[in-house]
Design a protein around this nucleic acid. Structure first.
Lengths: 125, 125
DNA sequence: TTGACATATTCCTAAATAGGAATATATATT
DNA sequence: AATATATATTCCTATTTAGGAATATGTCAA
């Protein structure tokens, strides 16, 4: 199998819910010590350190040593690729009726008059 | 271990690069048959079907049967949570010097005058 | 019905990964 | 030096997962 690794990818970094929690803690733009994050997240210290490491590799946070502490700070720019990627689809939910929307509606009508979207009560989980 | 599953999460769905490729193919808002995606992505059909299944569970695509084909269409709204989440950080890279930025700059100066951000040439990978 | 085609599913395996426990490392304090 | 504190790392394991191969399912066409 090939499975070219995408560990350091920002998209993978933010896929993990606990890491989004870490980001939420750092969202104020201030530098925070690991212990503070540990306390706020009620999570074991090694786990937090690992998540911070992953976020750092992905370029989402930066570290600075300060005495015996390591101060982590959000690097918002690291999230920019995600924003750039997803904002393209913004027009799907804004209410302006643009070409995408008109096309979808037209197709929906076609589908209705064609009837082939049957019941389909499979395991939907 | 707890590890509460987040498979059906949109963030996890788009973390996989091939799935973002699938989304790119569907980005025109039109319905596409699986085989077309297979052809465009140069990827094995079962793999594509699995990715489509994952995207469907995450609510990012919809399916409609049409004869022997299954037509997949992007459901842009499924990506909305990602956009809502990430847009909060947009101010980090826009050039307006807001409070976040001033704070970061102030802190940076403090750090410089404190000197404790030493060399630190560890394995950075 | 038979066969061609489109798609999904199952089984398998190698790799990734979160988190726990224990330990290592670094720094501060006495 | 000895100890406490802060953080990282290593080892372990259970779980997830991408993709390949084979197969099953569903639908159309002759």
């Amino acid at each position: 199998m090939v499975r070219r690794t995408h560990r350091a990818d920002v998209f993978s970094a933010i896929a993990e819910p606990r890491r989004r929690e870490v980001i939420a803690v750092l969202a104020d733009g201030e530098a925070h010590a690991v212990n503070e994050i540990v306390f706020r997240m009620k999570m074991a210290q090694p786990a937090v350190s690992k998540h911070l490491g992953a976020l750092r590799k992905a370029g989402v946070v930066t570290v600075v040593k300060r005495g015996q502490h390591r101060m982590y700070r959000l690097n918002g720019e690291g999230l920019r690729p995600v924003h750039e990627w997803v904002k393209v689809f913004e027009r799907y939910w804004t209410h302006q009726v643009d070409e995408i929307k008109r096309r979808a509606e037209r197709k929906a009508l076609e589908r209705m008059s064609r009837v082939d979207a049957g019941p389909n009560k499979k395991k939907e989980e």
